[in-house]
């Protein structure tokens, strides 16, 4: 019965891609997960992909015990500031990065294991009025923060033991940067979306702000999730929390837009529409797949290149879905319920 409840519903006429339930974990001491992610962790001589779950005041590390069971390794207790988000750092091991704050991010912390004194620790990376943060390849973390006078966009590089090695400042645009995204296949390029609905492009090696391009008035408050450079164009996966429904493309939670960085002109490439009868979204993008929790309590998955919804996890009797995140590696979706259950699906 449980397996049946968890079987994803494929929508009419779509491809055979689907979600297969691999395993699930439940933290009996925790309710209402804030975020979930994966991290590589060294233990007993081998490197394992572990699951990290965040509640408002604690973050737990889970390691695989058997194909379908998970054991809690450690729980870090945080202070009075609530945990908002786990920030995946794609190629870091034995280290979890989290954002804490109320409405906005006030602190970024590292949670780690120190072999020097055989203990689990936490350390402060940054404080301030942080608007956006993103983990990059090669153990780098980029964040944008704002004071009344100025905006700072900064990249911090970590050592393997989690120490901050050096920082680099990027030229800030005049507009406040609200989201950041890597450009797949271009290590030195970074994009951001701003409060006035522009895309900005940086050269992170030199810190130069290369271009500012307007997204358009039809889709205000766009958020960038991922970018891809191909054939002289910059393809950006955007979500639009405040887009109005239109006859031509419905109510697209995700769009891929092609920008010509030389001319700042753009065209829409694909629109990923919500399944019929669903509204609202909170999304995550990995490679070319997007996932979002809908206001109905379902999770939807899209192929952004096709602009198609490929799977839908309906809310079951066990409760609505509240979280949908892609694992840092492979095609694995982590879906969380209000009661603290996290299900792992292979996509």
């Amino acid at each position: 019965e449980v397996a049946e409840q968890l079987t994803p519903v494929l929508l009419d006429g779509l491809r055979e891609e689907t979600l297969q339930l691999v395993s699930k974990l439940k933290d009996p001491s925790s309710c209402c997960p804030v975020d979930v992610s994966t991290v590589w962790w060294d233990g007993a001589g081998c490197r394992e992909l572990c699951v990290v779950t965040a509640a408002e005041s604690s973050v737990s590390l889970w390691k695989p015990l058997a194909p379908d069971s998970w054991g809690k390794v450690y729980t870090w207790q945080l202070g009075e500031i609530p945990v908002i988000q786990i920030i995946p750092l794609p190629d870091m091991c034995n280290l979890v990065c989290i954002a804490l704050g109320d409405l906005e991010i006030a602190e970024i912390r590292l949670l780690l294991y120190s072999s020097e004194n055989d203990s689990f620790k936490q350390s402060l990376v940054k404080t301030g009025n942080i608007k956006a943060v993103l983990g990059l390849k090669d153990r780098r973390l980029v964040s944008s923060s704002r004071t009344v006078q100025e905006q700072q966009v900064e990249i911090v590089t970590f050592s393997e033991t989690g120490r901050s090695k050096d920082g680099q400042t990027l030229m800030p645009p005049e507009e406040t940067v609200l989201a950041l995204a890597e450009v797949e296949g271009m290590r030195d390029a970074l994009v951001g979306t701003t409060a006035l609905n522009s895309i900005v492009v940086w050269n992170v090696k030199t810190g130069q702000l290369l271009k500012k391009m307007h997204v358009g008035y039809s889709y205000p408050a766009s958020i960038c999730h991922r970018a891809y450079s191909d054939s002289g164009l910059l393809f950006v996966a955007l979500s639009h929390p405040h887009a109005k429904e239109s006859k031509s493309c419905g109510n697209p939670p995700f769009r891929v837009v092609a920008f010509n960085p030389k001319t700042a002109r753009s065209v829409g490439v694909t629109f990923s529409s919500l399944p019929p009868g669903h509204a609202g979204r909170q999304g995550d993008v990995q490679d070319t797949w997007a996932a979002a929790v809908l206001s109905s309590g379902a999770v939807a998955v899209w192929d952004l290149l096709l602009g198609q919804c490929t799977a839908l996890l309906p809310p079951g009797p066990a409760g609505s879905w509240v979280l949908a995140r892609w694992a840092t590696t492979g095609a694995c979706l982590l879906a969380g319920r209000r009661d603290g259950t996290v299900c792992l699906y292979r996509y």
């Binding site: 271009m186 050269n203 290369l210 002289g232 010509n260 001319t263």
Partner: peptide
Amino acid sequence: CSESDLGPISLNWFEELSAEAPP
């Protein structure tokens, strides 16, 4: 996407914009 929509496309846009942008 065509050049009529997007203007002249350059495969080396990143290097060209880096050469043009203020340091």
